[in-house]
Amino acid sequence: MTEHQSSLQTPARRSPGKTSAWHRSSLARALFSLALVLMLGVIFPAEGAFFRLGTHQGALRQASVVGILACGLLPVILAGGIDLSVGSVLGLSAVVAAKLSIHAGEPAWLSVLLVLGMGAACGAASGSVVAFARVQPFVATLAMMVFARGLAKTTSGGTKVATAVPGPDGVLRYVEVPPLFRALDAQVLDGSVATVTLVFLAIAAIVGFLCARHRLGRYLYAVGGNEEAARLSGVPVRATKILAYVISGLCAAAAGICQAAQEQQGDPEAGVTYELTAIAMVVIGGTSLKGGRGGMGLTLLGVLTIGYLDKILSINAVPEASRLMLTGAIVIVAAVAQKNS
């Protein structure tokens, strides 16, 4: 790698040697947090439930939907932005996916394509507001968060879109759960892993490739590291930002389809506060909210850490109040461990 290439790849970071050292230490810290949480499970195994395979399959399945949101948030956060709308876009996507595949009986590929298109449009809208109108990402995506939630409620008529379909005369008619939903909610590979977990891993692989190996990834790091320097080095800053939000919107839409499949209905209230969990997953992994630093490997560790914490508290039937306090405390420990890197 020539001097020139390396400076383009990491325009606003320290020298390559230091960067990889930073990355190694960050990885070690993320692993430390995960180990801490897993140790909690070993100490409190809930009558051996922690050592059963089903518990781990369950933990992975439950972390998948929010994990997909975290994958989408990664490019946005790397580019120095934030996307608060992912939970609402998830809810909207769940409603539209249910409307299309349960009520309208559309084929799976068409439903998926339309919902993904809608998610991408939501992302492109927030991205354009951020890139062209120069509105703070926090404000722009907050607006999208409120708007998408409202749209979800309007589309669904305020109720859940389920397999009981009201006819024109008000009488309910029952339809089958569509094959798309059944397939996504199934356990595959001899029942060893849930389909949604595979979807999550596939999305993580694609976004991870884009961030680490593709030109777009270099642009994301550059914009997040130092926007002005990136612009001067010829990085298309606006396009990069918009693309980051489009990826986030696409992921939120995919998560919405997975959520609807697991609930067998489209709930307009689905995904409330999921954005905060997803952001916590990205940050606990060690990706900096200031942008320019982090990666998919770290994010996956963050997803596992929060997912397992949730599961371990649940199998031990810890009361809600203590659960909130414990989660807060452990997130702080993990965040402090990530600090000073």
Partner: peptide, 23 residues
Amino acid sequence: VFEADMKWLEPEARKEMDSALAR
């Protein structure tokens, strides 16, 4: 034999029930 808050929410209920089934 098992009790948990699901906060009136279906996804939470499914999560807690998973734990009950595991135990």
